Amino acid sequence: MPSLIPVLFQLSDARHRGLMDMMGGVLEVKKEDILRMVIPQPPFMSKPDALWSEEERKQFKEYEKKVKELNEERDKYRKSLEAELKKLQNAIQENTQNFDEHLKRLFERRVKAEMVINQEELKINNIVFSLLLDEELSSREQFLNNYLQKKQDEKTKTSEAIQKAREDLDVFKENHDTLVAEDKVLDRSFKKEFSDISGHQVDVLYKLFKRRPRVPKQKTQTEVNTLVPYGERPGSGKLNKETFAQLMKSMDELDNVSNMPEGLDPSVWEHFCATRRAKVENEYKV
């Protein structure tokens, strides 16, 4: 069996020469240049093939061979590019899927992290709200306690004032009853006091005994802002003294001798005026 090595060398050498011819003597050609490569047609191809010489026919066959080899190289390169493209597309798709999965996991982690953060912020807000509410309730409780204490103090003062007013009322009633009884005694004993004069004079004196001077009534100012309404009014004592002084001054006019009935003994008149003054003072007290 003949050796294949010389044949391979011959084929390799022939292919090398063919490529050298196609590349214009330049073997260092990039693969992508093969797609742009064009083998120039021999000049004689512009003539009809019937006019070609034997040498030209050989050159044409050589030209067809080069074109065929170039097309084969182009097909091989195209197939390699398509295979590489498919490989790259698969790699891109795989990387895209991996990226999407990784992004999805990161997004889920982010959602969980934000959920935890929101829960913690909600807890913080609840704590702050509870503190503010507790502070508001404490302030309100303090205000109500102070208000309650104030009202309790007022109640205590009012109760004490009511108790004192009741005691004063009892004393006043007792004094009033005594004064009323004395007033009735004075009224009933009037005729006995003047039994030594005539009945006509007694009747005249009794009418004068019932007469009272006209004293203008003075209105007392009500203490509107007084905390306890049962206490003593500061201005009442002063007003009573002024009214009593005016009353006594008017009584002086009634006690004047010019008002004495005719024929009445002056000593009897003086006794009558003293009795009437005592009766008026007693009525004023009542």
Rank of each mutant, 00 (worst) to 15 (best):
V29R: 14
V29L: 11
K30G: 14
K30L: 09
K31A: 13
K31V: 09
E32A: 05
E32I: 08
E32R: 13
D33W: 07
D33E: 15
I34G: 00
I34A: 05
I34T: 07
L35I: 10
L35H: 11
L35N: 06
M37Q: 09
M37V: 03
V38Y: 00
V38S: 14
V38M: 10
V38P: 02
I39P: 00
I39V: 08
P42H: 01
P42A: 02
P43N: 04
F44H: 03
M45W: 00
S46G: 09
S46M: 10
K47D: 05
K47C: 02
K47G: 01
A50M: 06
A50Y: 03
A50T: 04
L51P: 00
L51F: 01
L51M: 12
W52C: 00
E54Y: 04
E54V: 09
E55L: 06
E55I: 04
R57G: 03
K58N: 07
K58L: 08
K58W: 03
K58C: 02
Q59W: 04
Q59N: 04
F60Y: 15
E62Q: 15
E62L: 12
Y63P: 00
Y63M: 04
Y63N: 02
E64C: 14
K65E: 11
K66D: 01
K68L: 14
K68N: 15
E69G: 01
L70T: 04
L70H: 01
N71T: 05
R74Y: 00
R74C: 03
D75S: 09
K76G: 04
K76F: 13
Y77T: 07
K79G: 13
K79D: 11
E82A: 13
E82T: 09
A83V: 05
L85F: 05
K87L: 04
L88G: 08
L88V: 12
Q89H: 11
Q89E: 15
Q89P: 03
A91K: 13
I92S: 10
Q93R: 12
Q93Y: 04
Q93F: 04
E94R: 13
E94H: 15
N95W: 07
T96W: 14
Q97E: 08
Q97W: 05
N98H: 09
N98I: 10
F99E: 11
F99L: 13
E101G: 12
E101P: 01
H102E: 15
H102M: 13
L103K: 10
K104D: 15
K104F: 09
R105M: 04
R105N: 06
R105P: 01
L106C: 02
F107S: 11
E108V: 12
E108A: 10
R109C: 00
R109Q: 09
R109P: 01
R110G: 07
R110P: 03
V111H: 07
V111W: 02
V111L: 07
K112V: 07
K112Y: 06
K112M: 08
E114A: 15
V116F: 09
V116S: 05
I117N: 10
I117H: 06
Q119W: 08
Q119D: 14
E120K: 15
E120H: 10
E120W: 04
E121W: 02
E121C: 10
L122I: 07
L122R: 14
K123E: 15
N125L: 14
N125W: 02
N125V: 07
N126S: 12
V128Q: 13
V128L: 11
F129G: 05
L131G: 01
L131C: 11
L133Y: 08
D134Q: 12
E135Q: 08
E136Q: 14
S138N: 15
S138T: 07
S139M: 09
E141F: 02
